[in-house]
Amino acid sequence: MAIEVRIPTILRTYTGGAKTVEGSGDTLAALLSDLDSRHAGLRGRLITEQGGLHRFVNIYVNDEDVRFLGSLDAKLNDGDNVTILPAVAGGAFGFAAAAALLGRNTAR
């Protein structure tokens, strides 16, 4: 069972520069674990230590944001396309919680 996954530039260090990789799994969580077995560290950039999806990463199954499909429990089928995009966000000040939510300091 193959699912094509599109990888954004910032995460291609984990895929040897590849723009797309293939993986398998019947849920998003299973797919990310499968990918991490070949691309170690990738999963840690997408999932927080608490086990949820990072607030500032967007993952789509076909044309839908996985947040509307049950997040990590989103069901996957053979032939699905998964796209990962870094959220584009920021702002003048105040949103210190954003950085904390991201957990970038520990992920890097």
């Binding site: 500032f56 959220a87 702002g91 105040g94």
Partner: peptide
Amino acid sequence: VIYHSHTATEAYPSRTDTDLAGVPE
């Protein structure tokens, strides 16, 4: 180019901007 405005402060990236910048190119 990815742009945004700051409406009360200077046009310099905030800590939030830096932490969340996900498109290095």
